[in-house]
Design a protein around this nucleic acid. Structure first.
Lengths: 164, 164
DNA sequence: CAAGATAGTCAAGCATTCTTGACAAGTCAA
DNA sequence: TTGACTTGTCAAGAATGCTTGACTATCTTG
């Protein structure tokens, strides 16, 4: 469900449609740049979906499955693949003989760092393209929108709510 | 490829990451609202991906496949499904005995209109949430970003380029 | 210690969304 | 008119991203 918003409609494009399209274009550009890197692994979407949920200390398979809302067997398959690619590693959990801690390997950390730095480069390009002030102001507006989406109640004009 | 951007990194979230997350949240909300409608068809992503490429006059299967970058056989299956749901119809192309014109049926047009109107409601909610001026200003910034993405050359400060 | 719950693993299967290959009907150029 | 090409169609199969079910090793509780 990524394109149906972009139906050509009236003369004046809706803001939401522009936002969706810009996000899609930026995503495509980011993916292209990251994959053009020398060591650019060819992850698939299901694999990369794990990354945001893997803390430096590692995490258990079952916890990961819970956060992602899928079965532990599904996560197992993804982790097995990513371990085979050298991105993740499974360490014995010292506090529980059954459990293992899934964490980034050192090459995995390098790959992630490289990807994030590519993302920062893209961000600089965009900021330069529309001007630094516009970019900062966009950032502030998006943060307020983000807060409004998570809690559609009071926070109408104030600053960004940093929760966790 | 929708989540790898959102890796928790430094204290200051990057603007790109906020934009991706806001787009994802808005998408989820939009999909939920549209599907909660009384006559809310349960389209899948592959189906809805066709919609933006179907003009009022209709379009040929092969052209549609070319635009989507997939085989005509794949498009055929999707169109067959959507015709079964009563959303699309296939009319004989008067200018070519082999070809058929794929177009929205009248119920399909109604469904699309309903979806777009739900999208407009959501847009109003968001605009009210962060303030009308902020929303308009967000819109302008996104349009300039959009232009910069499509043509990363000169248009640095000016207004939105309305091409087609 | 026995019983039961929990963590990870292995296997098989299923829905989705594409693909390749084959083909009939229609068009068009020689 | 004949041969090459295009359009839509049908069939079969493959890759992806899950699922359910079964099983072992380990922990926990009475």
């Amino acid at each position: 469900m990524t394109d149906w918003h972009e139906i050509e409609t009236s003369k004046r494009e809706a803001t939401l449609q522009v936002l969706f399209k810009v996000a899609r274009l930026l995503n495509e550009k980011a993916v292209a740049r990251v994959q053009d890197r020398p060591g650019g692994q060819s992850f698939r979407a299901a694999h990369t979906a794990l990354f945001p949920h893997i803390p430096p200390e590692g995490i258990r398979l079952t916890q990961l499955a819970g956060r992602l809302g899928i079965t532990k067997q599904a996560v197992f398959q993804l982790v097995r693949d990513l371990e085979g690619m050298g991105v993740l590693e499974r360490l014995q959990d010292p506090s529980d003989g059954r459990a293992k801690l899934i964490a980034f390997s050192s090459t995995g950390r390098t790959a992630i760092a490289s990807g994030l730095s590519t993302l920062r480069e893209l961000e600089q390009d965009m900021a330069a393209g529309i001007g630094q002030e516009s970019w900062q102001q966009l950032r502030m507006t998006l943060l307020r929108l983000h807060d409004h989406l998570l809690d559609p109640l009071k926070p109408c004009q104030g600053g960004h709510q940093t929760s966790e």
